[in-house]
Design a protein around this nucleic acid. Sequence first.
DNA 1: TTAATATATGAACACATATTCATATAGGAG
DNA 2: CTCCTATATGAATATGTGTTCATATATTAA
Lengths: 117, 117
Amino acid sequence: MSDKCLCKLISQDEVDMIKAALPDTQTITRLAEFFKVFGDPSRLTILHFLSKAELCVADLAALANMGQSAVSHQLKLLRLSRLVKFRKEGTVVYYSLNDAHIQNLVDVALEHVREES
Amino acid sequence: MSDKCLCKLISQDEVDMIKAALPDTQTITRLAEFFKVFGDPSRLTILHFLSKAELCVADLAALANMGQSAVSHQLKLLRLSRLVKFRKEGTVVYYSLNDAHIQNLVDVALEHVREES
DNA sequence: TTAATATATGAACACATATTCATATAGGAG
DNA sequence: CTCCTATATGAATATGTGTTCATATATTAA
């Protein structure tokens, strides 16, 4: 919190404007939560598969080389984030992407990552 | 890894295609790392301020209400992620966004978060 | 009813991570 | 040179997180 620095290149007015432009705490928190969901390889893999087809938990586990429990835990998180929806048929639960436009975000980031070296 | 499920709605050919479309492990890992950087409120706040002006560490700390050390640690991470660049002037180090198009990604996500409830 | 299967879930564990504290480094002023 | 300031950094700590294990729940079949 050392604000002894007097090296501000910008005026107090500009400081005020910059501060004012900062989204409120809740919005920033939710934005961080949103990004955090995509910040895990397992979830990205699951989301990739679901972007291609509606899949049940066991098939997702097989495709992603993950344990059933791990997949189930991650699907719960993705459900809470409203990124996936599901449909029950007997004991089988089929998951799919809730919002196709999520794929765009991943694609944009993928391109960004790929163009870096 | 229980793949006893016989409930596949899709053919083996489709399974193979879906598997083939999955980016390689390294790419997925880097994609996850990329998102992870944005998955923290402090870093999002820093990135926001830097999207508005070139700022030194002390000013960033003051604006973001963070300790100097915490800001410095996060800036190191942002540097390693190549999201920010810096310029030294005496003992003062000025940071700025390395790539203005990063802002677009944040804006897209911001809109997504805001339109949800 | 019992048995089998698909999924969900809580606890435990290992690991990652964000902050703080203390200190190191480096540059400018005197 | 010494002192002061700006920043960086390592260690310690607290908290968060992903997986595994065991088990619960639920649906279907026999």
